[in-house]
Simulated scan of single mutants.
Amino acid sequence: MPDQDDKDHEMNWTSLTFQDGQTPNGPYIHKIGVPPKPNLLKEFKTTVKETFFPDDPLRTFKDQSRSRKIILGAQAIFPILEWGRSYNITKFRGDLIAGLTIASLCIPQDIGYSNLAYLKPQYGLCKCFLHLFVVQSC
């Protein structure tokens, strides 16, 4: 039976790591420290920025000339100015098929929902066209 001295000198192999990072029981374990806590104002500012501007939309305007900023602003408001030159009949055909697919789904669905609400089918069609032409274009 081992005495107390032998128990004190036994090695704890689970906490032992070698120079190459390997442990006797498994692969390398990288220990990461806890980052410092930012102050409250900085944390609030970062949270608000990521909530309202998750992809930093104004980064393209940085370090640009005034005329280039005007062009970039116009392209942000009217996206067709950016991609309109590269639009062709192949892309139009794909857009037409996508539009017909959405219309074939939305029109019967909205007529059915108007019937569920005890409304005339015309109300469902109006809602459908409003949805297709106003909401989908945004």
Results as ranks from 00 to 15, higher is better:
Leu119Phe: 04
Glu43Cys: 04
Pro121Ala: 00
Asn12Cys: 10
Leu16Ile: 02
Ile102His: 11
Lys49Ile: 04
Pro38Arg: 09
Arg59Leu: 01
Gln122Tyr: 14
Thr51His: 03
Ile32Lys: 12
Asp20Phe: 04
Asn88Glu: 06
Trp83Gly: 09
Trp83Pro: 15
Ile77Leu: 07
Met1Thr: 07
Ser104Asp: 09
Gln75Lys: 06
Ala103Trp: 10
Arg85Phe: 13
Arg59Gln: 03
Phe129Ser: 01
Pro36Gln: 10
Lys69Glu: 01
Glu50Ser: 05
Asp20Gly: 04
Gln22Thr: 08
Leu130Gly: 12
Cys128Asn: 06
Val135Ala: 11
Glu10Asp: 15
Tyr87Gln: 07
Phe18Gly: 08
Asn39Ser: 03
Leu119Gly: 05
Thr51Glu: 03
Thr46His: 10
Gln4Arg: 09
Lys62Glu: 09
Thr60Phe: 03
Leu58Cys: 05
Leu132Ala: 00
Gly84His: 00
Glu43Trp: 05
Gly73Arg: 02
Leu96Pro: 01
Ala98Ser: 13
Ser65Trp: 03
Ala74Arg: 06
Tyr28Cys: 08
Pro2Lys: 11
Pro57Lys: 00
Ile107Asn: 03
Gln4His: 15
Ile77Met: 11
Pro79Phe: 02
Asp95Ala: 02
Glu82Trp: 03
Pro79Glu: 02
Leu130Thr: 09
Ala117His: 04
Cys126Gln: 13
Lys42Thr: 10
His131Leu: 12
Phe92Cys: 10
Lys42Met: 14
Asp95Ile: 01
Asp20Cys: 04
Arg66Asp: 12
Asp8Glu: 15
Lys69Thr: 01
Phe53Cys: 04
Ile107Asp: 02
Gly84Ile: 00
Leu105Pro: 08
Asp3Ala: 15
Asn115Lys: 15
Gly112His: 03
Ile71Ser: 09
Gln122Val: 11
Phe53Val: 04
Thr47Asn: 04
Gln64Cys: 06
Pro36Ser: 12
Pro35Trp: 00
Lys42Leu: 12
Gln75Ala: 05
Tyr123Gln: 07
Ile32Pro: 15
Asp55Val: 06
Leu81Asn: 03
Leu119Pro: 05
Ile70Val: 06
Phe61Asn: 01
Thr17Cys: 11
Thr60Asn: 08
Asp8Met: 10
Thr47Asp: 02
Phe53Arg: 03
Leu58Thr: 02
Met11Pro: 12
Asn12Gly: 12
Val34Leu: 10
Pro54Tyr: 00
Asp63Ala: 01
